[in-house]
Design a binder for these strands. Structure first.
Lengths: 145, 145
DNA sequence: CCAAACTGGTTTCATTTGTAACCATTGAAA
DNA sequence: TTTCAATGGTTACAAATGAAACCAGTTTGG
Protein backbone atom coordinates (compact mmCIF):
# COMPACT_ATOMS: atom_id res chain seq x y z
CA UNK A 1 0.00 0.00 0.00
CA UNK A 2 1.09 3.52 -0.75
CA UNK A 3 2.17 5.26 2.44
CA UNK A 4 3.24 8.80 3.12
CA UNK A 5 6.10 9.12 5.56
CA UNK A 6 5.21 12.20 7.49
CA UNK A 7 8.67 12.69 8.95
CA UNK A 8 10.14 12.95 5.46
CA UNK A 9 7.36 15.05 3.98
CA UNK A 10 8.64 18.51 3.20
CA UNK A 11 5.63 20.59 4.29
CA UNK A 12 5.50 18.73 7.56
CA UNK A 13 9.24 19.00 8.24
CA UNK A 14 9.26 22.68 7.50
CA UNK A 15 6.28 23.40 9.66
CA UNK A 16 7.53 21.36 12.57
CA UNK A 17 10.93 22.97 12.48
CA UNK A 18 9.59 26.48 12.09
CA UNK A 19 7.20 25.89 14.94
CA UNK A 20 9.91 24.60 17.24
CA UNK A 21 12.38 27.37 16.42
CA UNK A 22 9.77 30.08 16.56
CA UNK A 23 8.38 28.83 19.83
CA UNK A 24 11.82 28.78 21.35
CA UNK A 25 12.67 32.21 20.06
CA UNK A 26 9.38 33.66 21.22
CA UNK A 27 10.34 33.16 24.83
CA UNK A 28 12.88 35.93 24.37
CA UNK A 29 10.50 38.72 23.44
CA UNK A 30 7.69 37.29 25.51
CA UNK A 31 9.67 37.07 28.72
CA UNK A 32 11.38 40.36 28.17
CA UNK A 33 8.50 42.56 27.11
CA UNK A 34 5.37 40.47 26.91
CA UNK A 35 5.23 40.87 23.14
CA UNK A 36 3.29 38.59 20.82
CA UNK A 37 4.87 37.44 17.57
CA UNK A 38 3.02 39.97 15.42
CA UNK A 39 4.10 42.70 17.82
CA UNK A 40 7.70 41.55 17.74
CA UNK A 41 7.65 41.51 13.96
CA UNK A 42 6.15 44.94 13.84
CA UNK A 43 8.78 46.29 16.18
CA UNK A 44 11.49 44.61 14.22
CA UNK A 45 10.16 45.70 10.83
CA UNK A 46 9.92 49.26 11.98
CA UNK A 47 13.35 49.20 13.54
CA UNK A 48 14.83 47.89 10.35
CA UNK A 49 13.10 50.16 7.90
CA UNK A 50 12.47 53.33 9.80
CA UNK A 51 9.18 54.96 8.94
CA UNK A 52 6.88 52.79 6.83
CA UNK A 53 3.17 52.27 6.26
CA UNK A 54 1.11 49.45 7.68
CA UNK A 55 0.72 47.89 4.25
CA UNK A 56 4.44 47.90 3.61
CA UNK A 57 4.97 46.44 7.03
CA UNK A 58 2.60 43.63 6.21
CA UNK A 59 4.46 42.84 3.03
CA UNK A 60 7.86 43.01 4.58
CA UNK A 61 7.03 40.82 7.53
CA UNK A 62 4.53 38.53 5.82
CA UNK A 63 1.63 39.36 8.08
CA UNK A 64 -2.05 39.57 7.36
CA UNK A 65 -3.30 43.11 7.53
CA UNK A 66 -5.49 42.46 10.54
CA UNK A 67 -2.48 41.18 12.42
CA UNK A 68 -0.58 44.31 11.50
CA UNK A 69 -3.48 46.50 12.49
CA UNK A 70 -3.78 44.91 15.91
CA UNK A 71 -0.06 44.81 16.58
CA UNK A 72 0.29 48.45 15.62
CA UNK A 73 -2.60 49.36 17.89
CA UNK A 74 -0.93 47.62 20.81
CA UNK A 75 2.47 49.18 20.21
CA UNK A 76 0.81 52.53 19.92
CA UNK A 77 -0.95 51.93 23.22
CA UNK A 78 2.49 51.30 24.75
CA UNK A 79 3.72 54.49 23.13
CA UNK A 80 6.37 52.58 21.21
CA UNK A 81 5.28 54.02 17.90
CA UNK A 82 3.39 56.95 16.49
CA UNK A 83 1.34 57.39 13.35
CA UNK A 84 1.65 60.40 11.14
CA UNK A 85 -0.76 61.12 8.33
CA UNK A 86 0.48 61.12 4.76
CA UNK A 87 0.33 64.52 3.10
CA UNK A 88 -0.92 63.32 -0.25
CA UNK A 89 -3.11 60.38 0.63
CA UNK A 90 -5.18 60.65 3.74
CA UNK A 91 -5.81 56.92 3.93
CA UNK A 92 -2.15 56.23 4.55
CA UNK A 93 -0.34 56.55 7.83
CA UNK A 94 3.38 56.37 8.38
CA UNK A 95 4.52 54.47 11.41
CA UNK A 96 7.61 55.43 13.36
CA UNK A 97 9.14 54.11 16.55
CA UNK A 98 9.26 56.46 19.49
CA UNK A 99 12.29 56.74 21.70
CA UNK A 100 10.86 54.03 23.94
CA UNK A 101 10.14 51.80 20.94
CA UNK A 102 13.61 52.30 19.61
CA UNK A 103 15.10 51.51 22.97
CA UNK A 104 13.18 48.24 23.10
CA UNK A 105 14.30 47.45 19.58
CA UNK A 106 17.94 48.14 20.35
CA UNK A 107 17.67 45.90 23.32
CA UNK A 108 16.10 43.07 21.36
CA UNK A 109 18.39 42.99 18.34
CA UNK A 110 21.45 41.56 20.09
CA UNK A 111 19.30 38.95 21.79
CA UNK A 112 17.82 37.90 18.47
CA UNK A 113 21.21 37.70 16.85
CA UNK A 114 22.62 35.73 19.74
CA UNK A 115 19.75 33.29 19.49
CA UNK A 116 20.40 32.71 15.82
CA UNK A 117 24.13 32.47 16.33
CA UNK A 118 23.74 29.85 19.04
CA UNK A 119 21.37 27.84 16.94
CA UNK A 120 23.70 27.91 13.95
CA UNK A 121 26.67 27.13 16.16
CA UNK A 122 25.26 23.66 16.56
CA UNK A 123 25.77 23.06 12.85
CA UNK A 124 28.91 22.52 10.84
CA UNK A 125 29.94 25.07 8.24
CA UNK A 126 28.66 22.91 5.41
CA UNK A 127 25.36 22.35 7.18
CA UNK A 128 24.96 26.06 7.64
CA UNK A 129 25.60 26.54 3.95
CA UNK A 130 23.08 23.83 3.14
CA UNK A 131 20.32 25.42 5.17
CA UNK A 132 21.05 28.82 3.77
CA UNK A 133 21.11 27.64 0.16
CA UNK A 134 18.17 25.32 0.55
CA UNK A 135 15.91 27.94 2.07
CA UNK A 136 16.93 30.46 -0.55
CA UNK A 137 16.11 28.00 -3.29
CA UNK A 138 12.71 27.27 -1.84
CA UNK A 139 12.00 30.95 -1.38
CA UNK A 140 12.84 31.45 -5.02
CA UNK A 141 10.68 28.55 -6.12
CA UNK A 142 7.67 29.84 -4.23
CA UNK A 143 8.18 33.36 -5.46
CA UNK A 144 7.76 32.27 -9.05
CA UNK A 145 4.67 30.21 -8.33
CA UNK B 1 23.05 51.34 14.51
CA UNK B 2 22.65 47.63 14.96
CA UNK B 3 19.88 46.36 12.71
CA UNK B 4 18.31 42.96 12.31
CA UNK B 5 17.56 42.00 8.74
CA UNK B 6 14.33 40.14 9.07
CA UNK B 7 14.53 38.57 5.63
CA UNK B 8 17.82 36.91 6.55
CA UNK B 9 16.85 35.94 10.05
CA UNK B 10 16.55 32.18 10.31
CA UNK B 11 13.46 31.89 12.54
CA UNK B 12 11.62 34.32 10.31
CA UNK B 13 12.67 32.65 7.08
CA UNK B 14 11.67 29.25 8.34
CA UNK B 15 8.33 30.40 9.61
CA UNK B 16 7.49 32.32 6.50
CA UNK B 17 8.37 29.44 4.23
CA UNK B 18 6.57 26.87 6.33
CA UNK B 19 3.52 29.07 6.43
CA UNK B 20 3.47 29.57 2.69
CA UNK B 21 4.04 25.92 1.86
CA UNK B 22 1.60 24.69 4.45
CA UNK B 23 -1.05 27.15 3.38
CA UNK B 24 -0.69 26.09 -0.21
CA UNK B 25 -0.77 22.42 0.65
CA UNK B 26 -3.76 22.83 2.92
CA UNK B 27 -5.95 23.71 -0.01
CA UNK B 28 -5.63 20.10 -1.12
CA UNK B 29 -7.17 18.45 1.93
CA UNK B 30 -9.43 21.38 2.64
CA UNK B 31 -10.98 21.50 -0.81
CA UNK B 32 -11.19 17.77 -1.11
CA UNK B 33 -12.59 16.82 2.27
CA UNK B 34 -12.93 19.93 4.39
CA UNK B 35 -10.21 18.76 6.75
CA UNK B 36 -8.26 21.02 9.07
CA UNK B 37 -4.52 20.58 9.43
CA UNK B 38 -4.75 18.64 12.70
CA UNK B 39 -7.32 16.39 11.09
CA UNK B 40 -5.15 15.82 8.06
CA UNK B 41 -2.19 14.98 10.25
CA UNK B 42 -4.24 12.58 12.27
CA UNK B 43 -5.48 10.84 9.16
CA UNK B 44 -2.02 10.69 7.77
CA UNK B 45 -0.42 9.50 11.01
CA UNK B 46 -2.98 6.75 11.34
CA UNK B 47 -2.63 5.72 7.73
CA UNK B 48 1.09 5.50 8.09
CA UNK B 49 1.28 3.70 11.38
CA UNK B 50 -1.86 1.62 11.50
CA UNK B 51 -3.37 1.39 14.95
CA UNK B 52 -1.83 3.75 17.49
CA UNK B 53 -2.82 5.64 20.62
CA UNK B 54 -3.64 9.32 20.81
CA UNK B 55 -0.47 10.05 22.74
CA UNK B 56 1.72 8.30 20.20
CA UNK B 57 -0.10 10.17 17.47
CA UNK B 58 0.69 13.44 19.18
CA UNK B 59 4.36 12.59 19.37
CA UNK B 60 4.59 11.37 15.83
CA UNK B 61 2.85 14.33 14.30
CA UNK B 62 4.06 17.00 16.73
CA UNK B 63 0.64 18.05 17.88
CA UNK B 64 -0.55 19.28 21.24
CA UNK B 65 -2.75 16.73 22.94
CA UNK B 66 -5.81 18.93 22.79
CA UNK B 67 -5.39 19.20 19.04
CA UNK B 68 -5.17 15.45 18.79
CA UNK B 69 -8.20 15.00 20.99
CA UNK B 70 -10.32 17.31 18.89
CA UNK B 71 -9.11 15.99 15.57
CA UNK B 72 -9.78 12.43 16.66
CA UNK B 73 -13.26 13.39 17.82
CA UNK B 74 -14.03 14.90 14.44
CA UNK B 75 -12.71 11.94 12.44
CA UNK B 76 -14.69 9.65 14.69
CA UNK B 77 -17.80 11.69 14.01
CA UNK B 78 -17.17 11.17 10.31
CA UNK B 79 -16.74 7.48 10.99
CA UNK B 80 -13.22 7.57 9.58
CA UNK B 81 -11.74 5.98 12.66
CA UNK B 82 -12.74 3.88 15.63
CA UNK B 83 -11.38 3.62 19.12
CA UNK B 84 -10.82 0.31 20.84
CA UNK B 85 -10.00 0.03 24.50
CA UNK B 86 -6.66 -1.33 25.57
CA UNK B 87 -6.91 -4.64 27.38
CA UNK B 88 -4.33 -3.88 30.04
CA UNK B 89 -4.77 -0.17 30.60
CA UNK B 90 -8.24 1.19 30.48
CA UNK B 91 -7.08 4.78 30.06
CA UNK B 92 -5.59 4.00 26.68
CA UNK B 93 -7.47 3.74 23.43
CA UNK B 94 -6.14 2.46 20.15
CA UNK B 95 -7.18 4.36 17.09
CA UNK B 96 -7.74 2.68 13.76
CA UNK B 97 -8.97 3.93 10.43
CA UNK B 98 -12.24 2.53 9.17
CA UNK B 99 -12.75 1.54 5.58
CA UNK B 100 -13.96 5.03 4.82
CA UNK B 101 -10.99 6.57 6.60
CA UNK B 102 -8.60 4.35 4.76
CA UNK B 103 -10.25 5.21 1.46
CA UNK B 104 -9.80 8.91 2.16
CA UNK B 105 -6.19 8.30 3.13
CA UNK B 106 -5.48 6.32 -0.03
CA UNK B 107 -6.95 9.11 -2.04
CA UNK B 108 -4.89 11.78 -0.30
CA UNK B 109 -1.47 10.17 -0.40
CA UNK B 110 -0.84 10.53 -4.13
CA UNK B 111 -2.03 14.12 -4.00
CA UNK B 112 0.35 14.89 -1.17
CA UNK B 113 3.22 13.24 -2.96
CA UNK B 114 2.44 15.04 -6.16
CA UNK B 115 2.40 18.34 -4.33
CA UNK B 116 5.82 17.69 -2.87
CA UNK B 117 7.17 16.43 -6.16
CA UNK B 118 6.00 19.53 -8.01
CA UNK B 119 7.47 21.79 -5.39
CA UNK B 120 10.82 20.03 -5.50
CA UNK B 121 10.75 19.97 -9.27
CA UNK B 122 11.30 23.69 -9.21
CA UNK B 123 14.69 23.13 -7.62
CA UNK B 124 17.90 21.77 -9.05
CA UNK B 125 19.30 18.50 -7.76
CA UNK B 126 21.87 20.26 -5.64
CA UNK B 127 19.27 22.59 -4.20
CA UNK B 128 17.13 19.62 -3.27
CA UNK B 129 20.10 18.08 -1.54
CA UNK B 130 20.78 21.33 0.26
CA UNK B 131 17.27 21.59 1.64
CA UNK B 132 17.24 17.98 2.65
CA UNK B 133 20.61 18.15 4.41
CA UNK B 134 19.96 21.54 5.93
CA UNK B 135 16.65 20.57 7.45
CA UNK B 136 18.07 17.31 8.74
CA UNK B 137 20.92 19.17 10.38
CA UNK B 138 18.57 21.61 12.06
CA UNK B 139 16.33 18.81 13.20
CA UNK B 140 19.34 17.16 14.74
CA UNK B 141 20.50 20.36 16.39
CA UNK B 142 17.11 20.96 17.97
CA UNK B 143 16.77 17.39 19.09
CA UNK B 144 19.87 17.68 21.22
CA UNK B 145 18.80 20.97 22.78
C1' DC C 1 -3.55 -1.92 51.86
C1' DC C 2 -3.88 3.21 51.07
C1' DA C 3 -2.51 7.67 49.88
C1' DA C 4 0.14 10.40 46.88
C1' DA C 5 1.97 11.10 42.34
C1' DC C 6 1.47 10.17 37.54
C1' DT C 7 -0.54 9.27 32.93
C1' DG C 8 -4.07 9.08 28.94
C1' DG C 9 -7.36 11.77 27.39
C1' DT C 10 -11.21 15.48 27.56
C1' DT C 11 -13.18 19.92 28.63
C1' DT C 12 -13.35 24.80 29.88
C1' DC C 13 -11.96 29.31 29.26
C1' DA C 14 -9.38 33.11 27.50
C1' DT C 15 -6.60 34.50 23.64
C1' DT C 16 -5.31 34.50 18.82
C1' DT C 17 -6.47 34.10 14.28
C1' DG C 18 -8.76 34.63 9.59
C1' DT C 19 -12.68 35.91 6.70
C1' DA C 20 -15.59 39.05 5.47
C1' DA C 21 -17.81 43.18 5.99
C1' DC C 22 -16.98 47.73 6.66
C1' DC C 23 -15.53 53.03 6.39
C1' DA C 24 -13.00 56.53 4.32
C1' DT C 25 -10.44 58.07 0.62
C1' DT C 26 -8.56 58.00 -3.97
C1' DG C 27 -8.24 57.10 -9.04
C1' DA C 28 -10.31 56.00 -13.44
C1' DA C 29 -13.91 56.00 -16.60
C1' DA C 30 -18.10 57.65 -18.59
C1' DT D 1 -18.85 65.84 -12.59
C1' DT D 2 -20.81 61.49 -11.00
C1' DT D 3 -20.20 56.95 -10.42
C1' DC D 4 -17.74 52.81 -9.74
C1' DA D 5 -13.75 50.05 -8.77
C1' DA D 6 -9.68 49.86 -5.97
C1' DT D 7 -6.92 50.73 -1.78
C1' DG D 8 -5.40 51.68 3.31
C1' DG D 9 -6.84 50.44 7.38
C1' DT D 10 -10.27 48.87 11.20
C1' DT D 11 -13.86 46.05 13.20
C1' DA D 12 -17.15 42.15 14.05
C1' DC D 13 -17.81 37.58 14.17
C1' DA D 14 -16.69 32.77 14.05
C1' DA D 15 -13.28 29.28 14.31
C1' DA D 16 -8.77 27.51 15.96
C1' DT D 17 -5.60 27.39 19.61
C1' DG D 18 -3.09 26.65 24.30
C1' DA D 19 -2.94 26.65 29.25
C1' DA D 20 -4.75 24.83 32.97
C1' DA D 21 -8.16 22.34 35.31
C1' DC D 22 -10.19 18.17 35.18
C1' DC D 23 -11.71 12.96 35.31
C1' DA D 24 -10.67 8.42 35.10
C1' DG D 25 -7.45 4.79 35.84
C1' DT D 26 -2.57 3.18 37.29
C1' DT D 27 1.64 2.97 39.67
C1' DT D 28 4.62 3.70 43.63
C1' DG D 29 6.06 3.94 48.34
C1' DG D 30 5.10 3.77 52.96
Amino acid sequence: MDVLELENFLPYRLYRLADAVSREFSTIYRDRHGLTRPEWRTLSGLGQRGSITATALGEQSAMHKTKVSRAVAELERRRWLTRTADENDRRVEHLTLTKAGLAAYREMVPLAKAFERELLAKLSASERAAISDGLAALEGALGKG
